Computed example of a mutant assay.
Amino acid sequence: MKKPFLLLVLVAFQFSFSQTETGSKQFWDKLKTYCGQSFEGKITAGATADDPFSGKKLVMHVRSCEENRIRIPFFVGDDKSRTWILTSHDNVITLKHDHRLEDGTPDKVTQYGGTSSNSGLSDIQFFPADQETCDLIAYASTNVWWITVDEKSFTYNLKRIGSDRVFSVSFDTTKPIKTPEAPWGWKQ
């Protein structure tokens, strides 16, 4: 009599645990499945003729996956200055943009981004501009970034609230490509 009851309690505990896993945890776990892989992308919104991203090869490389930090260099042609840094703390994810000069030193405009206001969903996380961003880049104080992940893609997005500014780049995660060289500021 005790064994079936104990088994039932264990099954119920496992079920309740799996049902309470947050959207941010599921999102984080999905991102980690890309670790070590690189993907080519294309601009899906916001491209203009004078946009510095237009006509360039766009590559993301999920280069570093730690327990609470994922670093994703984003290359625009030969420009290897950008790395998206995602950190997770207490079921909330923060996105920062690490910009480096070619010699590896930090750019004067770096570490801007934002923190999710809640745990989000398993396939999308929003990052409204934080105070550091507002202090660094006043015009970006109304920025909202979001990242979506699904079975076929990773998409990075930006919308500047109150303006026409929107930008999206989508990466096909079904077709990994050759890993690029290290981004600026990284040792192999």
Rank of each mutant, 00 (worst) to 15 (best):
D107P: 09
K2H: 14
L7M: 11
K56G: 13
N157L: 04
Q131G: 08
T174E: 14
G41A: 05
E132L: 00
E67W: 02
V109H: 02
F27Y: 13
L95Q: 04
D98E: 06
I147V: 15
G113R: 01
D29F: 06
G114K: 00
E181D: 13
F75Q: 08
S141R: 04
S64L: 02
D79E: 08
H99Q: 13
L101R: 15
E102S: 14
K96R: 07
L10A: 11
C35G: 11
K30I: 09
W146S: 10
R160Y: 00
T48D: 11
A182W: 04
T142Y: 01
T174M: 09
D50A: 08
T179Q: 12
A12E: 09
G41Q: 03
S54A: 11
L101T: 15
E67N: 10
Y139L: 15
D29R: 07
Q37V: 09
P73G: 03
P106V: 00
F127I: 14
K96F: 03
D29N: 10
D79C: 03
L95S: 04
Q26D: 08
S170L: 05
V169W: 06
A49L: 14
F171G: 12
F75M: 05
V166D: 03
D78T: 08
L31T: 09
K108W: 11
A140K: 03
R69Y: 10
S168R: 02
D107V: 01
Y112E: 00
L10H: 09
L8F: 09
